[in-house]
């Protein structure tokens, strides 16, 4: 029953003696700190100096070399080069140097990567280009066409004519090839073929979508 006189919370709060034992006395209660602690507190003692011998120098050089290698390699992923809308003379060179590495793909063991990381799309593109550029392919196709033609005409022509025909065909073949190549280049080089006409449908659609959005 002795504890009663001390109030209800005697189990939780500490007595005067216990406070004293913890070093808290009535007189010098520390004022509550008002400011947050400094972001960079002052060091009480100066830190020990770092050892700088030949081995440390060697390690630092090696480390810098390694980082430089990584920065040059495709492992260092960069943002797409962008301009700020103002054309400058140096833009061309800057973009060139920035985009030089974009084409390169990291050298990995692709079998050991998940399929979604493998550079499949790039490969397909390369194959397509090759098909178009390859002259032997074109000539082969022409040859098959030629032989078909010959088969159709074979009933009517004589041996002598055939020889002439072959020569003519060869000429035509060359011309065809030239034309095809030219066509290919022209298609790529100019943008006449591109459709720049904007019928305004897209604009409307977007607007519609925006309007439709908040309707529930």
């Amino acid at each position: 029953m002795a504890g009663r006189g001390r109030g209800r919370g005697s189990g939780l709060s500490l007595t005067q003696e216990q406070y004293q034992a913890l070093g808290i006395t009535r007189g010098d209660n520390t004022p509550a700190p008002l400011a947050p602690p400094p972001l960079f507190p002052k060091l009480e003692t100066k830190p020990l100096p770092l050892t700088c011998d030949a081995t440390t120098d060697y390690m630092l050089i090696v480390k810098d070399q390694f980082i430089e290698y990584l920065h040059e390699s495709p492992a260092y992923v960069k943002l797409q080069a962008r301009t700020d809308g103002i054309e400058r003379y140096s833009d061309k060179y800057k973009l060139l140097s920035l985009n030089a590495k974009q084409g390169k793909v990291l050298d990995c063991v692709w079998n050991r990567m998940p399929s979604e990381l493998r550079p499949q799309t790039a490969r397909v593109r390369v194959v397509r280009k090759r098909k178009l550029n390859d002259t032997t392919d074109i000539s082969k196709r022409l040859e098959t066409l030629e032989s078909k033609e010959l088969q159709e005409e074979s009933g009517e022509t004589t041996v002598v004519n055939e020889n002439e025909d072959v020569k003519k065909d060869a000429m035509e073949e060359e011309e065809l090839e030239d034309e095809e190549e030219q066509d290919y280049e022209v298609d790529d080089g100019t943008d006449y073929a591109n459709n720049y006409f904007d019928n305004g449908e897209d604009y409307d659609e977007e607007d519609d979508n925006l309007d439709d959005g908040p309707v529930y």
Binding site: P74, A75, V77, L79, L106, C108, M113, E116, L117
Partner: peptide
């Protein structure tokens, strides 16, 4: 770019 970064992370 995420794919490229993942390649780098997996490679090393």
């Amino acid at each position: 770019q995420v794919v490229e970064s993942l390649r780098t992370l997996l490679k090393f």
